[in-house]
Design a protein around this nucleic acid. Structure first.
Lengths: 197, 197
DNA sequence: TACTATCCGGAACATCGTTCCGGTTTGTCA
DNA sequence: TGACAAACCGGAACGATGTTCCGGATAGTA
């Protein structure tokens, strides 16, 4: 499906140099602005930081989610890859699950407002939500299954529900009185199968 | 506290008849629009429904939260009052806590987008968040304390954290694949198991 | 009835997301 | 190299929304 350019530079996408430059500048600017003002910072602010017009940002990233996923793609990937590794390395599936969730929570709370945006169905964030799920849901499902199989947690918990719930709990991480991790720990405890009773 | 409230209409005579009429019309219109379009429906829509101008709505309810709390004040009050009653009537403090949380969750999920709005720190919803907490936090604290004292749940859980977490979990109730109640049940189970290992 | 404090309505302003188009730049081909 | 067309750029423009403001209408009173 790769249509080559007329002259035959098929290996590299035949994009103009300025287009590539702007795309890089936008990614860098977005990353900075996201840290400073959250992922729902005004588009104009990101455009200004990158030194481009608003039209340019929409050309490269048609929806907001496209920009956000592009900025955080690397970290999503890292998190997804960590799943199997933890499962192989940990002393038990439940430990692996817990460690993986820790990773996921770290990712969410260190990005200002990411968790908030992921759940919001307004704006163009629905696609962001979708991408996260597409990539991470199977990983979570695998960990859950393994823990169930090892008889460490009760069966019947839907991966989607768990991930969404964890995402929800991470909303509003800026509040010093609210530490999502404690509640997630509680949730995991509840997940553990009661051995006796 | 029965006679007045800072935001309430203590002495009816101090207000002009048209002002009172409009306030009532606004409350009714807001209630309808909230059900139809969620609590973050455009101000203009509510104003139009009530047959008033946008200025009028801001005069009566300076912030969005003022309007929302006014609309739901009765139900918040009901929930707050149910706390002690449940504690007195249930067979154990933990049962009372669980029943009360059920009530709270019912309230949140039946109002379209209320949970979403309560956590969002953008818009003028911060005050809404505040009012909910002011009224319900002591009730929750009381229930928690009782359950701890009865040795039914572990100690050390902050009421604020629990309420906020439950509120967070209720976000996005429209998704048929996501039922916050199951996760909240898990959370309560985690609360219940004493940490001993 | 006349008057004034109060209130009303909507215009006006600011912000933001998104689209669109004239002008510019880049890569290519002769 | 020089010219050309496609691709791209920037920002103006549009629509939606929150919020403020003020001239005019109105209720309650003397």
């Amino acid at each position: 499906m790769a249509s080559e350019s007329p002259t035959g530079r098929a290996s590299v996408r035949s994009k103009r140099a300025d287009a590539l430059r702007n795309q890089q500048a936008l990614l860098a600017a977005a990353a900075e602005v996201f840290v400073a003002s959250g992922v729902d910072a005004p588009i104009r602010q990101i455009a200004a930081r990158a030194g481009v017009g608003t039209g340019t940002i929409y050309r490269h990233f048609p929806t907001r989610a496209d920009l956000v996923t592009a900025v955080y793609r690397h970290q999503i990937e890292e998190c997804a890859e960590a799943g199997p590794e933890l499962l192989a390395g940990a002393d038990s599936p439940f430990t692996a699950l817990r460690q993986w969730i820790d990773l996921f929570v770290d990712f969410l709370v260190t990005k200002h407002g990411l968790a908030d945006a992921m759940q919001s169905d307004s704006s163009g964030f629905a696609a962001l939500h979708g991408h996260f799920l597409d990539r991470l849901l199977p990983v979570c499902a695998r960990l859950l299954d393994a823990a169930v199989e090892a008889d460490e947690i009760r069966a019947g918990t839907q991966p989607y529900e768990l991930m969404r719930g964890i995402g929800n709990l991470c909303i509003g991480g800026g509040d010093p009185q609210y530490d999502p991790r404690r509640l997630i720990e509680l949730l995991l405890d509840g997940l553990r199968r009661p051995r006796s009773e």
